[in-house]
């Protein structure tokens, strides 16, 4: 696992979702589904459409990669853990399939993959990030609304949007310290 930046600092990944650029087309949903071979009937990432009474913009919805992740806390075998770079992952070999994590996640990000026998979810395409590439959702985004920020990189423009407070987490009151940040227009 490569988690060092060129300067030697550790990566600290976050996903920035610019809802002002999101057109709600669900390209990301399908790119993710295909790239990660997500089984029929399940999605790691979806778009919640805007509604006249609710949100004003489409909202991409996936694992929030929380710093204080309830799924990590309840996992009896430590199969689910947060990598040093901030990505919450699950190790299939250690998972006993108890599904506590599915119940614990306040964002409803997990589904049970019958084939793999684990409660799976978005891992920010960790393998691709490790190879220096973009996650499938970011790569395919029509509105260029998605970006992976590296909070460990002082020059990262997307990280700056988080630091400045322009991009903010969804439901911070849940206290899980999510790593997905949303830019919301007026």
């Amino acid at each position: 696992m490569s988690t060092l930046t060129k300067s030697g600092a550790r990566h600290q990944y976050a996903l920035v979702v610019d809802t002002t650029r999101c057109i709600g087309c669900e390209a990301c949903s399908v790119a993710c589904r295909v790239e990660n071979e997500v089984p029929d009937g399940h999605w790691r990432s979806r778009i919640a459409p805007p509604t006249s009474g609710g949100s004003k913009a489409p909202l991409k919805w996936s694992c929030m990669h929380c710093a204080d992740a309830p799924c990590v806390q309840v996992c009896p075998t430590k199969a689910t853990y947060r990598r040093t770079d901030g990505i919450v992952v699950i190790v299939a070999d250690k998972c006993v399939g108890c599904k506590y994590c599915i119940v614990a996640c306040p964002y409803g990000a997990r589904y049970f993959d019958d084939k793999k026998g684990i409660p799976d979810k978005c891992d920010l395409c960790a393998g691709m990030l490790d190879a220096g590439l973009k996650p499938a959702c970011v790569q395919t985004c029509v509105g260029r609304a998605l970006a992976v920020a590296d909070l460990a990189d002082p020059h990262d423009k997307d990280a700056a949007r988080i630091r400045s407070g322009e991009a903010r987490p969804l439901h911070p009151e849940l206290g899980t310290k999510p790593s997905v940040y949303y830019v919301v227009g007026e």
Binding site: C25, A27, A31, V34, E35, Q139, T140, V142
Partner: peptide, 26 residues
């Protein structure tokens, strides 16, 4: 076919494709 993605050399799409394009494999 394991994945379809936009050709990043095309300036007008920057490597993006829509949900339908991503679903070609389906």
């Amino acid at each position: 076919v394991v994945r379809i993605q936009g050709n990043p050399r095309e300036k007008s799409t920057q490597g993006a494709i829509c949900a339908r394009g991503n679903a070609g494999i389906s």
